[in-house]
Amino acid sequence: MTGPRLPTARGEVSAGLLSALRDGELRRPPPGALDPYGDDLQLALYLLYELHYQGFEGVAEDLEWDPGLLALRRTLERRFLAALRADVPPHADAGQALAALLVEPVGPDDTSVSHYLRREGELWQLREYAVLRSLYHLKEADPHAWVIPRLRGRAKAAMVAVEFDEFGAGRADEIHARMFADLMGDLDLEPAYGHYLEQAPAEALATVNLMSLFGLHRALRGALVGHFATVEVTSPPDSRRLAAALRRTGAGAAAQRFYDEHVAADAVHEQVVRRDVVGGLLASEPHLEADVAFGVHATGFLEDRLGDRLLRTWRRRRSALRVPLPDGEGRRTS
């Protein structure tokens, strides 16, 4: 089994990092006016985080703890986090942040990707959606596992129970990441881990980098929990609409199964996460409440940016991908 291949650079910083990953010599670029949400920073951060997950083909495994790379990661993380703290208004109330997500619109929501896909999504758009989401779903729940040693008591017991479910409750073929790979097979996409990194624009990378950032830093455990709660709370209605879109376009049984399972599973997960993970954490560490709220709002902020890009391009019947899919992939003629 070979690891994912390194992608092409998207600017000075990612170019310098890529050459360091190949031959170990880090040329430190001046990350002066680097856009915190831009392709160069987000790709570089993504590559650095990926060393903690599955790594890359031809990249030495022990670079994960290379002090030079960690220093670069810290610089990029600080820039990303500072931008998020500036763009996400401060909220003190975690319960209120989550309560706002528990309300469903009466009619169609023009700003929601899942509403769009349910009503008018075509197979090529569902494929692009799967391509972009594959960066997370093929490592689904992995970034959240890092928070486990940072939790105690009720929050820990509940977090582990939900993660156990995400990881297939003891059965490899029910690991959610595996179920997503099966969905990709139904859509004639390549289900190999990290295969579509090249296609993912900065908006998509940022949503995954956020989880890795929160997961890898104990100091951000409150934000990680807020992020996880947001994912679980918003998932059931979104998943129902995505399952309907896949059913309508005849995508296939495995494609529907991933989202059908997430309607039922996340209706349970959201209860357990709100009650016991968030509730348990804040009972033992009440000072983390603003961080939990920050995690909720930062997740919504980056999801909205990705949603804007998808809807803006799709409504003009353009691809939302950064570069087209390789020939023969995802181009089943209909």
């Binding site: 528990l102 309300v103 469903e104 619109p105 129902r240």
Partner: peptide
């Protein structure tokens, strides 16, 4: 619920977007 007896979050409150849940 559309997957009765299991919850599918259909119990959630519904609002007009303009009424705005904050």
């Amino acid at each position: 619920s559309r997957i009765y007896p299991w919850c599918d979050t259909s119990h959630r409150r519904r609002t007009d977007r303009d009424q705005g849940a904050t």
